[in-house]
Nucleic acid binder design. Structure first.
Lengths: 152, 152
DNA sequence: CCGTTATTGCGAATAATTCGCAGTAGCGGG
DNA sequence: CCCGCTACTGCGAATTATTCGCAATAACGG
């Protein structure tokens, strides 16, 4: 029976790459977090376990993991990216323009859209990012209150 | 009866902003293109009509237009953004990881997803980006051929 | 036509990511 | 278990994309 670790090494071998301590570490840090981490945060957390790891390696590792489909990159409107390990099914994001809060959700309708596009265009869909934006319930209320205040 | 130009000025006035020649130009360049332009390209094209316009102004104008909802920003995996003037309905993108080709499409299912989220979370959805990726029909074929070649 | 002040152009500053290179370490084979 | 090949790493410098500070300019309401 395969241990998860062996399985991981096989994945790398199959991709013609080497499973290094740094790559394992980056992946572990990502999997240990439920949030989406940016490269800098990831770097800091990884450094706790390996003070010698470099930021460049973090970036290079993220690129590799992304290419292997183990990690997903999100660009939520800021200047930098956030990364997340791919487990469970795909899921999508709503980001509040007021407070920056991110709501994650899932829906089978995206798969349906992929299906449609596959049928219509003959494409092979490997990844899907759905990024809604607007205002969360809380911020909508805040805005209404401000409007009333301005009207005085 | 309003001319389109007057209408544009009103839009800016309503937002407490001024309609300058540069802003008009950036918008015109964007509307004249069917593709998504990045800031640099936009800058070059704008310079044809106004050699003095600066790249900083292009960026600032894009930020304003985006805030006003006249322009949409797309981050399709590269290091930089692409911009597109908002006309017609919303539409979504598939990008081929092989050749970089972008297929635009539309589907009412996204509106349905928005609806669901609105009902479930009480959020107000203002923008939706759906970004699928994978391989186009052509690149899939190319890949199969390469695989066979490697097998020899 | 005037005054206020948003906007611009310029070049410098930042932020995020990538690169070049010399040294290190995976891992397949003996 | 050791060797050799070469992918990978750390480092600091280089790029790329975008933003900022500031003095000069120009929109537009009155």
């Amino acid at each position: 029976m395969d241990t998860p670790r062996d399985h991981l090494r096989d994945l790398f071998r199959a991709a013609g790459r080497r499973l290094t301590a740094q790559r394992r570490l980056v992946l572990e840090v990502l999997e240990a977090s439920t949030e989406h981490l940016d490269a800098e945060t990831l770097y800091e957390r990884a450094r706790v376990h390996d003070p010698n790891i470099s930021l460049a390696t973090v970036y290079r590792t993220l690129a590799v993991l992304k290419e292997m489909g183990l990690v997903e990159e999100h660009r939520l409107g800021e200047g930098h990216s956030h990364y997340e390990s791919v487990r469970g099914g795909p899921h999508y994001h709503f980001i509040c323009q007021g407070c920056g809060r991110v709501i994650e959700f899932d829906t089978p309708l995206v798969a349906q859209i992929e299906q449609e596009l596959r049928d219509r265009e003959g494409v092979l869909v490997l990844g899907a990012h759905l990024h809604l934006s607007g205002y969360c319930a809380q911020c909508q209320q805040t805005m209404h209150q401000q409007e009333e205040a301005n009207r005085q």
